[in-house]
Protein backbone atom coordinates (compact mmCIF):
# COMPACT_ATOMS: atom_id res chain seq x y z
CA UNK A 1 0.00 0.00 0.00
CA UNK A 2 2.80 2.39 0.96
CA UNK A 3 4.70 1.36 -2.15
CA UNK A 4 1.64 2.15 -4.26
CA UNK A 5 1.29 5.55 -2.64
CA UNK A 6 4.97 6.30 -3.20
CA UNK A 7 4.76 5.18 -6.83
CA UNK A 8 2.02 7.75 -7.34
CA UNK A 9 4.41 10.48 -6.15
CA UNK A 10 7.44 10.31 -8.46
CA UNK A 11 8.63 13.73 -7.27
CA UNK A 12 8.92 12.47 -3.70
CA UNK A 13 10.62 9.30 -4.91
CA UNK A 14 13.25 11.35 -6.74
CA UNK A 15 13.75 13.63 -3.75
CA UNK A 16 14.46 10.50 -1.70
CA UNK A 17 16.77 9.23 -4.46
CA UNK A 18 18.66 12.55 -4.36
CA UNK A 19 18.97 12.46 -0.57
CA UNK A 20 20.08 8.83 -0.70
CA UNK A 21 22.59 9.50 -3.50
CA UNK A 22 24.08 12.49 -1.72
CA UNK A 23 24.12 10.48 1.53
CA UNK A 24 26.08 7.66 -0.11
CA UNK A 25 28.48 10.21 -1.63
CA UNK A 26 29.02 11.81 1.77
CA UNK A 27 29.67 8.46 3.45
CA UNK A 28 32.09 7.44 0.70
CA UNK A 29 33.92 10.76 0.90
CA UNK A 30 34.03 10.56 4.69
CA UNK A 31 35.73 7.24 4.34
CA UNK A 32 38.09 7.89 1.44
CA UNK A 33 38.50 11.62 0.70
CA UNK A 34 41.23 13.54 2.51
CA UNK A 35 40.07 15.95 5.17
CA UNK A 36 40.93 19.34 3.56
CA UNK A 37 39.31 18.30 0.27
CA UNK A 38 36.26 17.03 2.12
CA UNK A 39 35.90 20.35 3.92
CA UNK A 40 36.21 22.23 0.63
CA UNK A 41 33.63 19.96 -0.98
CA UNK A 42 31.11 20.31 1.87
CA UNK A 43 31.62 24.07 1.96
CA UNK A 44 31.13 24.36 -1.80
CA UNK A 45 28.05 22.12 -1.73
CA UNK A 46 26.52 24.12 1.11
CA UNK A 47 27.24 27.42 -0.63
CA UNK A 48 25.81 26.17 -3.92
CA UNK A 49 22.59 24.96 -2.34
CA UNK A 50 22.27 28.09 -0.19
CA UNK A 51 22.82 30.33 -3.20
CA UNK A 52 20.28 28.29 -5.20
CA UNK A 53 17.67 28.67 -2.47
CA UNK A 54 18.37 32.39 -2.16
CA UNK A 55 17.92 32.80 -5.91
CA UNK A 56 14.60 30.95 -5.69
CA UNK A 57 13.30 33.20 -2.91
CA UNK A 58 14.45 36.42 -4.60
CA UNK A 59 13.16 35.33 -8.02
CA UNK A 60 9.79 34.45 -6.51
CA UNK A 61 9.48 37.83 -4.79
CA UNK A 62 10.57 39.74 -7.90
CA UNK A 63 8.48 37.62 -10.27
CA UNK A 64 5.33 37.83 -8.15
CA UNK A 65 5.72 41.59 -7.61
CA UNK A 66 6.43 42.33 -11.28
CA UNK A 67 3.79 39.95 -12.69
CA UNK A 68 1.00 41.11 -10.39
CA UNK A 69 2.17 44.73 -10.44
CA UNK A 70 2.22 44.93 -14.22
CA UNK A 71 -1.26 43.42 -14.45
CA UNK A 72 -2.71 45.84 -11.91
CA UNK A 73 -0.97 48.82 -13.55
CA UNK A 74 -2.44 47.82 -16.89
CA UNK A 75 -5.92 47.39 -15.39
CA UNK A 76 -5.76 50.76 -13.64
CA UNK A 77 -4.76 52.46 -16.89
CA UNK A 78 -1.35 53.63 -15.60
CA UNK A 79 0.10 53.41 -19.07
CA UNK A 80 3.26 55.43 -18.40
CA UNK A 81 4.47 53.35 -15.48
CA UNK A 82 3.31 50.15 -17.16
CA UNK A 83 5.22 50.83 -20.38
CA UNK A 84 8.36 51.95 -18.53
CA UNK A 85 8.34 48.80 -16.41
CA UNK A 86 7.68 46.60 -19.42
CA UNK A 87 10.54 48.30 -21.30
CA UNK A 88 12.98 47.76 -18.44
CA UNK A 89 11.98 44.14 -18.07
CA UNK A 90 12.34 43.59 -21.79
CA UNK A 91 15.87 44.99 -21.63
CA UNK A 92 16.69 42.43 -18.93
CA UNK A 93 15.02 39.76 -21.05
CA UNK A 94 17.13 40.70 -24.08
CA UNK A 95 20.45 40.18 -22.28
CA UNK A 96 21.78 36.60 -22.41
CA UNK A 97 21.76 35.25 -18.86
CA UNK A 98 25.46 34.34 -18.75
CA UNK A 99 26.51 37.74 -20.10
CA UNK A 100 24.23 39.57 -17.65
CA UNK A 101 25.50 37.61 -14.68
CA UNK A 102 29.13 38.11 -15.72
CA UNK A 103 28.46 41.85 -15.93
CA UNK A 104 26.97 41.70 -12.45
CA UNK A 105 30.04 39.91 -11.18
CA UNK A 106 32.22 42.70 -12.55
CA UNK A 107 30.27 45.11 -10.35
CA UNK A 108 30.69 42.72 -7.42
CA UNK A 109 34.41 42.51 -8.11
CA UNK A 110 34.70 46.29 -7.99
CA UNK A 111 32.80 46.35 -4.72
CA UNK A 112 35.06 43.65 -3.28
CA UNK A 113 38.16 45.57 -4.37
CA UNK A 114 36.86 48.69 -2.64
CA UNK A 115 35.99 46.57 0.37
CA UNK A 116 32.37 47.62 0.23
CA UNK A 117 31.35 43.97 0.21
CA UNK A 118 32.97 41.85 2.88
CA UNK A 119 31.99 38.54 4.39
CA UNK A 120 30.98 35.44 2.48
CA UNK A 121 27.31 35.61 3.52
CA UNK A 122 26.90 39.08 2.03
CA UNK A 123 28.80 38.05 -1.08
CA UNK A 124 26.73 34.90 -1.49
CA UNK A 125 23.57 36.97 -1.17
CA UNK A 126 24.62 39.46 -3.85
CA UNK A 127 25.83 36.70 -6.15
CA UNK A 128 22.38 35.13 -5.81
CA UNK A 129 20.66 38.47 -6.31
CA UNK A 130 22.46 38.92 -9.63
CA UNK A 131 21.43 35.45 -10.80
CA UNK A 132 17.86 36.13 -9.59
CA UNK A 133 17.62 39.27 -11.75
CA UNK A 134 18.27 37.18 -14.84
CA UNK A 135 15.98 34.26 -14.02
CA UNK A 136 12.97 35.88 -12.29
CA UNK A 137 11.27 36.75 -15.58
CA UNK A 138 10.22 33.13 -15.96
CA UNK A 139 8.24 33.46 -12.75
CA UNK A 140 6.89 36.88 -13.72
CA UNK A 141 5.65 35.40 -17.02
CA UNK A 142 4.04 32.51 -15.18
CA UNK A 143 2.32 34.90 -12.77
CA UNK A 144 0.97 36.99 -15.66
CA UNK A 145 -0.16 33.87 -17.49
CA UNK A 146 -2.04 32.56 -14.47
CA UNK A 147 -3.72 35.92 -13.88
CA UNK A 148 -4.71 36.18 -17.54
CA UNK A 149 -6.14 32.67 -17.48
CA UNK A 150 -8.28 33.33 -14.41
CA UNK A 151 -9.26 36.85 -15.45
CA UNK A 152 -11.02 35.26 -18.42
CA UNK A 153 -13.20 33.15 -16.10
CA UNK A 154 -16.40 34.31 -14.44
CA UNK A 155 -15.00 34.15 -10.94
CA UNK A 156 -12.87 37.27 -11.47
CA UNK A 157 -15.70 39.62 -12.54
CA UNK A 158 -18.06 37.89 -10.11
CA UNK A 159 -15.75 38.86 -7.24
CA UNK A 160 -15.23 42.36 -8.63
CA UNK A 161 -19.01 42.88 -8.67
CA UNK A 162 -19.11 41.87 -5.03
CA UNK A 163 -16.60 44.60 -4.21
CA UNK A 164 -13.60 42.35 -3.59
CA UNK A 165 -10.42 44.33 -4.33
CA UNK A 166 -8.41 43.38 -7.38
CA UNK A 167 -5.25 43.11 -5.30
CA UNK A 168 -6.95 40.42 -3.23
CA UNK A 169 -8.38 38.63 -6.26
CA UNK A 170 -4.96 38.55 -7.93
CA UNK A 171 -2.72 37.82 -4.95
CA UNK A 172 -4.93 35.66 -2.76
CA UNK A 173 -7.61 34.09 -4.94
CA UNK A 174 -5.60 33.49 -8.12
CA UNK A 175 -1.95 33.25 -7.14
CA UNK A 176 -2.10 31.88 -3.61
CA UNK A 177 -5.13 29.62 -3.84
CA UNK A 178 -4.93 28.51 -7.45
CA UNK A 179 -1.31 28.75 -8.52
CA UNK A 180 0.84 27.44 -5.68
CA UNK A 181 1.52 24.18 -7.48
CA UNK A 182 2.50 26.02 -10.66
CA UNK A 183 4.71 28.43 -8.74
CA UNK A 184 6.37 25.60 -6.84
CA UNK A 185 7.07 23.89 -10.14
CA UNK A 186 8.62 27.08 -11.49
CA UNK A 187 10.65 27.49 -8.29
CA UNK A 188 12.08 23.99 -8.62
CA UNK A 189 13.05 24.79 -12.20
CA UNK A 190 14.58 28.12 -11.11
CA UNK A 191 16.60 26.29 -8.47
CA UNK A 192 18.02 23.98 -11.13
CA UNK A 193 18.73 26.93 -13.39
CA UNK A 194 20.36 28.85 -10.53
CA UNK A 195 22.68 25.95 -9.64
CA UNK A 196 23.62 25.52 -13.27
CA UNK A 197 24.24 29.24 -13.90
CA UNK A 198 26.06 29.78 -10.61
CA UNK A 199 28.40 26.88 -11.24
CA UNK A 200 28.96 27.84 -14.88
CA UNK A 201 29.86 31.39 -13.90
CA UNK A 202 32.09 30.31 -11.03
CA UNK A 203 33.83 27.85 -13.32
CA UNK A 204 34.43 30.57 -15.92
CA UNK A 205 35.67 32.95 -13.22
CA UNK A 206 37.91 30.41 -11.58
CA UNK A 207 39.44 29.36 -14.86
CA UNK A 208 39.68 32.64 -16.68
CA UNK A 209 40.06 35.61 -14.36
CA UNK A 210 43.05 37.03 -12.51
CA UNK A 211 44.04 35.55 -9.20
CA UNK A 212 43.70 38.86 -7.41
CA UNK A 213 39.94 38.78 -7.41
CA UNK A 214 38.96 35.22 -8.01
CA UNK A 215 37.77 32.10 -6.29
CA UNK A 216 39.67 33.05 -3.18
CA UNK A 217 37.49 36.18 -2.77
CA UNK A 218 34.14 34.75 -3.83
CA UNK A 219 32.56 32.07 -1.66
CA UNK A 220 33.41 28.64 -3.00
CA UNK A 221 30.74 26.84 -4.99
CA UNK A 222 30.75 23.52 -6.80
CA UNK A 223 31.55 25.34 -10.05
CA UNK A 224 34.56 27.05 -8.50
CA UNK A 225 35.76 23.83 -6.92
CA UNK A 226 35.45 22.02 -10.23
CA UNK A 227 37.83 24.54 -11.77
CA UNK A 228 40.66 23.92 -9.29
CA UNK A 229 43.74 22.11 -10.52
CA UNK A 230 43.06 19.03 -8.36
CA UNK A 231 39.54 18.62 -9.66
CA UNK A 232 40.58 19.11 -13.27
CA UNK A 233 43.22 16.40 -12.91
CA UNK A 234 40.58 14.12 -11.36
CA UNK A 235 38.26 14.67 -14.28
CA UNK A 236 41.08 14.12 -16.76
CA UNK A 237 41.81 10.84 -15.01
CA UNK A 238 38.44 9.57 -16.20
CA UNK A 239 39.90 9.58 -19.69
CA UNK A 240 42.65 7.21 -18.55
CA UNK A 241 40.21 4.33 -18.22
CA UNK A 242 39.67 4.39 -21.99
CA UNK A 243 43.21 3.12 -22.47
CA UNK A 244 43.60 1.44 -19.11
CA UNK A 245 40.27 0.00 -17.88
CA UNK A 246 42.00 -1.63 -14.95
CA UNK A 247 42.51 1.86 -13.56
CA UNK A 248 38.75 2.28 -13.02
CA UNK A 249 38.64 1.27 -9.33
CA UNK A 250 41.36 3.83 -8.60
CA UNK A 251 38.99 6.63 -9.69
CA UNK A 252 36.84 6.01 -6.65
CA UNK A 253 39.72 6.28 -4.22
CA UNK A 254 42.41 8.54 -5.73
CA UNK A 255 40.35 11.10 -7.72
CA UNK A 256 37.47 11.69 -5.37
CA UNK A 257 37.42 15.49 -5.16
CA UNK A 258 36.81 16.16 -8.85
CA UNK A 259 34.52 13.17 -9.29
CA UNK A 260 32.51 14.04 -6.19
CA UNK A 261 32.01 17.60 -7.39
CA UNK A 262 31.02 16.46 -10.87
CA UNK A 263 28.73 13.77 -9.46
CA UNK A 264 27.08 16.17 -6.99
CA UNK A 265 26.45 18.69 -9.77
CA UNK A 266 25.15 16.33 -12.43
CA UNK A 267 23.20 14.19 -10.01
CA UNK A 268 21.58 17.24 -8.39
CA UNK A 269 20.57 18.73 -11.74
CA UNK A 270 19.24 15.37 -12.96
CA UNK A 271 17.21 14.91 -9.78
CA UNK A 272 15.83 18.45 -9.97
CA UNK A 273 14.74 17.74 -13.53
CA UNK A 274 12.98 14.52 -12.58
CA UNK A 275 11.48 15.97 -9.40
CA UNK A 276 10.00 18.78 -11.49
CA UNK A 277 8.70 16.38 -14.14
CA UNK A 278 7.18 14.14 -11.46
CA UNK A 279 5.60 17.09 -9.72
CA UNK A 280 4.06 18.31 -12.97
CA UNK A 281 2.66 14.84 -13.67
CA UNK A 282 1.30 14.35 -10.14
CA UNK A 283 -0.39 17.75 -9.95
CA UNK A 284 -1.43 17.59 -13.61
CA UNK A 285 -0.02 21.06 -14.25
Amino acid sequence: MKGEKLAARPDLVWLLVWLAGMGVLLLWDLAFLNNPALKRLLNALFNTLAAGLTVVVLALLLGWACGAGLYLLERRGRKGVYLTMTFLLNIVRSVPQIVGILAGYIVLTLLIEREVLVGSAALLFWMSAIVAVFVFLDIADLVRGRIAQFAALDFYPAMLCCGVSEARIVNVEILWKNSRAHLLHAMIAVFGMAVFLQCSIDFILSVGLSTEVSASNFPATLGGLLATMDSKQDILAVGTILTDPAYTPQLFFRHLQGLSVAFALIFTLLCIHTITAGFVRRRRL
Binding site: L153, D154, F155, A158, M159, C161, C162, G163, V172, E173
Partner: peptide, 28 residues
Protein backbone atom coordinates in the same frame (compact mmCIF):
# COMPACT_ATOMS: atom_id res chain seq x y z
CA UNK B 1 -19.15 47.21 -7.15
CA UNK B 2 -20.31 45.79 -3.85
CA UNK B 3 -21.46 49.26 -2.73
CA UNK B 4 -24.52 50.33 -4.67
CA UNK B 5 -24.93 47.30 -6.92
CA UNK B 6 -23.88 43.67 -7.16
CA UNK B 7 -24.49 40.86 -9.58
CA UNK B 8 -24.83 37.13 -8.99
CA UNK B 9 -23.56 35.24 -12.03
CA UNK B 10 -25.54 32.37 -13.47
CA UNK B 11 -22.93 29.60 -13.38
CA UNK B 12 -21.97 29.12 -9.74
CA UNK B 13 -19.32 26.65 -10.83
CA UNK B 14 -17.41 29.43 -12.57
CA UNK B 15 -18.43 32.34 -10.36
CA UNK B 16 -16.88 30.89 -7.20
CA UNK B 17 -13.24 30.17 -6.56
CA UNK B 18 -13.12 26.35 -6.46
CA UNK B 19 -10.03 26.41 -4.21
CA UNK B 20 -11.64 28.63 -1.57
CA UNK B 21 -13.36 27.23 1.44
CA UNK B 22 -16.96 28.24 2.04
CA UNK B 23 -15.80 30.51 4.85
CA UNK B 24 -13.11 32.14 2.70
CA UNK B 25 -15.68 32.88 -0.01
CA UNK B 26 -16.99 35.68 2.20
CA UNK B 27 -13.55 37.16 2.92
CA UNK B 28 -12.67 40.36 1.12
Amino acid sequence: WGKSMTMVFQHADEALNPRSTVFDTFKG
